[in-house]
């Protein structure tokens, strides 16, 4: 009988299902929160709504990174969450997947900058900086941030960094510490 080739250490089906289930939970959480977002997004305050909530939208990426500690985990975690959102939770548009990709790249760059050696405070700090900068550049084009005046841009950038810093940095760090203490981490 053919035996297992144990040489490559790629993605297991368990990892994929694990991240997809987390993505579905996030989809449910977002559904509850999206009402608040929409209420704010229907006004001129939309850019604020975007930047305040951004950290929550991109949490899935760094969370996947610190839980699986794998090259590409942040990017794939974020992409999976975006795919879930697009396919199961009625975000029919193309923007969901494309933004997910961009956000994932931002997170991934942070961990990559540590040579994929640090999945702790430093990795997360760099990941939040990476995603803040990358998503801001992206919104410069996609959401027309280049049209806003300097004062608003600075405010938005700071809000964005705080949001991402808290949800995708501090909170993810707390979660990973909790998972480690619980003894359930892998």
């Amino acid at each position: 009988m053919q035996t297992i080739n144990n040489t490559k250490k790629g993605w297991s089906v368990k990892d994929v299902i694990f991240l997809a289930i987390i993505g579905i939970f996030f989809g449910i959480i977002y559904q509850v929160w999206s009402y608040a977002y929409y209420a704010l997004a229907a006004t001129p305050l939309k850019p604020y709504a975007n930047d305040i909530t951004l950290g929550v939208w991109i949490m899935a990426g760094p969370l996947a990174g610190v839980l699986l500690k794998k090259v590409g985990a942040s990017l794939i975690g974020e992409l999976l969450a975006a795919a879930v959102e697009m396919l199961l939770f009625s975000s029919w548009g193309a923007a969901t997947l494309i933004s997910g990709f961009i956000q994932g790249i931002g997170n991934e760059l942070g961990f990559a900058a540590t040579g994929y050696k640090n999945w702790d405070k430093l990795g997360l700090l760099l990941s939040t900086i990476g995603s803040t900068i990358i998503t801001f550049i992206w919104d410069w084009f996609q959401n027309g941030y280049n049209e806003y005046h300097m004062g608003l841009l600075v405010t938005l950038f700071i809000i964005r960094f705080i949001s991402i810093g808290f949800f995708s940095g501090v909170l993810v760090y707390w979660i990973s510490r909790l998972v480690n203490k619980s003894g359930l981490g892998k």
Binding site: F167, R177, L178, L184
Partner: peptide, 25 residues
Amino acid sequence: LWNPGLYLRIIIVALNWSGDLAEAM
């Protein structure tokens, strides 16, 4: 939304269920 405990619960479920499914597959 900001309680890490909420996510721990989610992660526990995701771990158990993904394990069950992957073993079955």
